[in-house]
Design a protein around this nucleic acid. Sequence first.
RNA 1: GGAGAACU
Length: 235
Amino acid sequence: LAVVTAVIAMYAKASCVDEAWVSFVKLSERDVVSWSAIISAFLYNGQAKDAIQLFEEMQKEGIKTDKITFVSILDACADDVALAEGRRMHDHIMINAFETDLVVGTALLNMYGRCGMLEDARRVFKDISGRDVVAWTVIVAAHAQQGHAKEAQRLLDQMREEGMAPNEVTFVSILNACSHSGLVDEGRQWFRLMKTTYGIVPVVDHYNCMIDLLARAGLMEEAEALVKEMPMTPT
RNA sequence: GGAGAACU
């Protein structure tokens, strides 16, 4: 069982969902871990809806959900912006007293953030113990996604006060959030702030986000200008 | 043996 589960995980990382699925159905016995592995396999390939369905099947089989499964399924809900399902998970998580766990809490936070539920996201964030850069990034990006740049900056200040610094991924997340919400001005502002007040040297991912943001808004000339001023070769 | 943020 353990070895097949490892094989499923390997297929997942190689984006071979079909192969992973074949291995999974061949199993005579399935525990939480093998179910989690196949759920992650679907998630990894952007099939969040299927992942959620698999989770429901798992529950029908009477398999008890653990911390890690919760994280995966919350991730699926975040990807799918499945708020109702996510809230149901939150209830289960509270019953199991996993709410303050860093990773579970961050996944919850991310789900609420992606669904635009800032109040819920803030409440979860407050209760997470030992918040790290990832948790901070998620809460900041959630605010950026809703266009609350000022509040997001306040959070970054607060983050600094607690002795933590945003990293490259923090700003990729913010820029990406702006891009998905069509916040062109905000995005341009964040790109500038990132370089000036936060001292982050933009890498290719940041440029990609900005180019994506501008292109989505139909600002092709500006996007092309940015490509030209990129210090690295575009991919 | 399966887990949390971004691009892809």
